[in-house]
Amino acid sequence: MKKEYVYKAFERFWHWAQAALIIFLGVTGFEIHGSIRFFGFDQAVRYHNVAAISFIILIVFAIFWHLTTGEWRQYMPTWKNLRAQAEYYVFGIFRNAPHPTRKTVLSKLNPLQKLVYAGLKVLVIPVMVVSGLLYMFYRYPQHNEILSLNIGSLEVIAVLHTIGAFLLVSFFIAHLYLGTTGRTVTSNLKAMITGYEELEEDSVDNKAQPVSHEPVLTK
């Protein structure tokens, strides 16, 4: 085991700011949706709009960081070991089997993470940003003038935004739980706070073998 600097300062700031914003957007958003009551509708709208703009600013910085550092490559989805990773969560994890992919500074995401995070980045977040901006800036059709966008009905925009919101909350729950499946229950959390994580050192074979289908047997 070797302590490595895995998550850079900006990366950690981005992660936690994004977490706070998404939680806050979720609470205010589902209040606007009518599911919960907390701030009151008018305040929820006001806060949601401010948080949304903040989130967009954060996204712009995050994109810049990912592009300039080349870190975006971490998220390139791959088929390799995808099945092995899924099988690990279904079988291996219960038997204390090793993670099928090794975490390194240059490859910190397992294949399932790559797939899910890439999906969030290219699909869910863009849909949320675009539908959210339309939600904010659309205008009903009017006579003789076009004020920004004329859209006849809010329904499609709102429903898309709601679908995205459900996906994000679902991701949030799964993300919290899977965060506990690191080397120890809190090792991932500590790493995201301090930036440092104990990683396996380079060994002979840094590509772990897929786990077999053997049923779990008691010894």
């Binding site: 949706h33 809010l154 329904e155 919101a165 729950i173």
Partner: peptide, 28 residues
């Protein structure tokens, strides 16, 4: 005849969305 935020929702999206959350939670 129109979508009013806070009043309207798509019942399918609501059903599937809540179902997804429940399943995710149950799975964890």
């Amino acid at each position: 005849g129109f979508y009013l935020p806070g009043r309207n929702y798509n019942p399918w999206v609501e059903f599937l969305g809540v179902g997804l959350l429940v399943l995710t939670l149950a799975a964890t």
